[in-house]
Design a protein around this nucleic acid. Structure first.
Ligand SMILES: [Mn+2]
Ligand SMILES: [Mn+2]
Ligand SMILES: [Mn+2]
Ligand SMILES: [Mn+2]
Lengths: 228, 228
DNA sequence: TAATATATTTAGATATGTCTAATTATTTAA
DNA sequence: TTAAATAATTAGACATATCTAAATATATTA
């Protein structure tokens, strides 16, 4: 598996593709465009380029999938990104709603030596501040089964495992209610039409909209071990 | 003094100009080209651009000087660069010969918030690992008078104040002899032709070539306070 | 001062990643 | 199954920073 030199644009696209593939079989052009904040035409151009370099399988009008080589390359960036998020949060005290944007810039200029020292100084962690798994040095990554909180039935008790890290206001809102990865919560009621969710967390009642609940991933708490 | 958005190329040029102006009245095209590792033609193009933006005074065939605005902008990058060098060295243990190249990449993606937290965590330092002054938040910077070690007369005792940070092999060599900013040294002899320099440092004798001595800046030790 | 060497600029080209508008393909709804 | 809506691609353009080669200016030497 040959070594390929990636530039910033390629790295951004690869990470976007990787993250799109966490929930879908194909990374569609428009999904990548949305994640990257660029036009679909630009994504198509990059899909062709990455395909030429054997980093993705590109099927016109369907989208892309990562090849083995592309997966490996993407995981290197993802590792950079998530290690940085944790380092910024733990070592420098940057609030969890701002680490994503910082990491997005730093991930491209992190040398392997610096990556290694950051990882060591954090004790080779396996989770970023939002509950996403940090790929290991060797390119392996935990594969956790999640459910969206919005799909949980009333009466169930679940553990918060992971939250979407891209919307600062959302993260600040969660933080204000002390909803972090590891938090155990019981779903009390689900509004039939709007999907409004009432939760009990440590004897306090919290109400979440369906959009917020869709950005929160949990697992069944019965078998779910406490984490963090 | 209006605020200007700089991109990476502009930042690199401004820092190169600033550093060239530490020893010369004009930053010449070829000096900037050498520092940046690009062609003179490219430097000319950027000089025009920076001139149009009122960041430099550009006199064709002579070079550039920083305007007030350009000086302020350059000092922001220099602050990023030197703070990062110190942080990488102190907080992450990266050897002093490798921090320059790392900082060169990181300096462009350091947010003001991150800069501030790094500075705080280091106790708002005023010197980088190579003895260069770190500009303060407000854009002020220490102005120290240096002499090149190569211009010191035999018999004089001087204190090492600052070394060129761009050549890793040179820095490793200095490190192997324990020559760091703050080290006091006595010049024993100077070879008349080659400029070979014999020094006494802590009762050990060290011989330096003229090129190395030219990259080391010192001050007269009689009135020079011990530093670091 | 004139000739030569060196430094700088100009002209023209290239690589890259992005855009908009127009076209084409796919999916959804009637 | 056709028509309409949505998604993706193509074509063509643009901004940017770099390059090389040729032309021109400045500095140095004879
Ligand atoms: Mn993130
Ligand atoms: Mn990024
Ligand atoms: Mn440096
Ligand atoms: Mn740089």
């Amino acid at each position: 598996m040959e070594r390929i030199t990636l530039n910033q644009a390629m790295e951004n696209h690869l990470r976007a593709i990787h993250e799109a593939l966490e929930t879908n079989e194909w990374a569609t052009t428009s999904e990548c465009a949305r994640r990257l904040g660029i036009s679909s035409a630009s994504v198509t151009a990059m899909s062709k380029k990455l395909s030429r370099l054997k980093l993705v399988k590109y099927v016109p009008y369907h989208g892309v999938q990562l090849t083995k080589l592309g997966e490996k390359s993407a995981l290197e960036i993802v590792r950079h990104h998530r290690l940085l998020e944790l380092y910024l949060s733990e070592a420098l005290g940057i609030p969890w709603d701002r680490v994503h944007d910082e990491a997005e810039k730093l991930e491209h200029v992190l040398s392997e030596e610096l990556e290694e020292r950051i990882s060591k100084s954090l004790g080779d962690p396996t989770q970023d501040p939002h509950g996403a798994p940090i790929p290991a040095r060797d390119g392996t990554i935990d594969h956790v089964e999640y459910r969206a909180l919005s799909s949980v039935e009333p009466g169930e008790t679940v553990t918060l495992l992971r939250v979407d890290d891209r919307v600062p206001e959302f993260l600040r809102y969660l933080g204000s209610m002390n909803l972090y990865p590891g938090t155990v919560m019981k779903v009390i009621t689900v509004e039939p039409l709007g999907g409004l969710l009432a939760l009990r967390v440590c004897d306090k009642e919290i109400v979440l909209g369906s959009q917020a609940a869709g950005m929160i991933r949990v697992t069944a708490a019965a078998k779910a071990e406490q984490r963090q």
